[in-house]
Structures are given as C-alpha cells and as structure tokens.
C-alpha cells in the first residue's frame, strides 16, 4: 500500500521535479525578482481611497504605494546583484 502511494506521488511530482531540475541556476534570479516585483506592481492598482483609508490626512508621505517602492528597492537590488 505504501509503495503504491509513493509511486502515485512520484508520478505526479516527478515531472515537476524534472522541470525544476532543467531550469539553469542563473535563471533562479528571475524567479526571485518576479516574486518581489509582481506583488509590488499589483499595489500600484490600489485606489487612493484604499491606500489612505483610516489615515488622519492625505499627505503624500502617507501614500502606502510610495512606501512599497521605498521598501522594496533594496530587496530588488540585493536579488538582482547577488551572486
């Protein structure tokens, strides 16, 4: 029974594992950068009302879309330049 379960799991996970093994290591950088940039780009679609909701005023420094880019920039540089 255990062998059967293991074979079934290997049947499903195997092709995915082979796919990941075929990805050159230097391409890992692009996956990491995508993981950082996709959610950051999505925040640009947030409305002004959503971003400032609950804030005492609407001064530019309270715009959380700006915060996102200030915060993420060092991370992007690290993952773009790291060996």
């Amino acid at each position: 029974m255990t062998d059967l379960i293991r074979s079934a799991i290997e049947l499903v996970l195997g092709p995915f594992d082979a796919l990941l093994s075929a990805v050159p290591l230097q391409h890992a950088r692009w996956f990491a950068l995508a993981l950082l940039l996709i959610p950051a780009l999505a925040t640009l679609r947030a409305s002004r009302e959503f971003v400032f909701r609950g804030a005492p005023d609407q001064k530019p420094w309270r715009d959380l879309r700006i915060w996102v880019w200030v915060v993420i920039l060092p991370y992007v540089l690290i993952y773009a330049l790291a060996p």
């Binding site: 990491a32 950082l36 950051a40 915060v71 993420i72 991370y75 993952y79």
Partner: peptide
C-alpha cells in the same frame, strides 16, 4: 529577505 518581503506586501 525573500521569505518576508513578498509575504508582508
């Protein structure tokens, strides 16, 4: 780093 930033966003 990668285990924090996207998740916190």
């Amino acid at each position: 780093w990668l285990g924090s930033m996207p998740a916190l966003l």
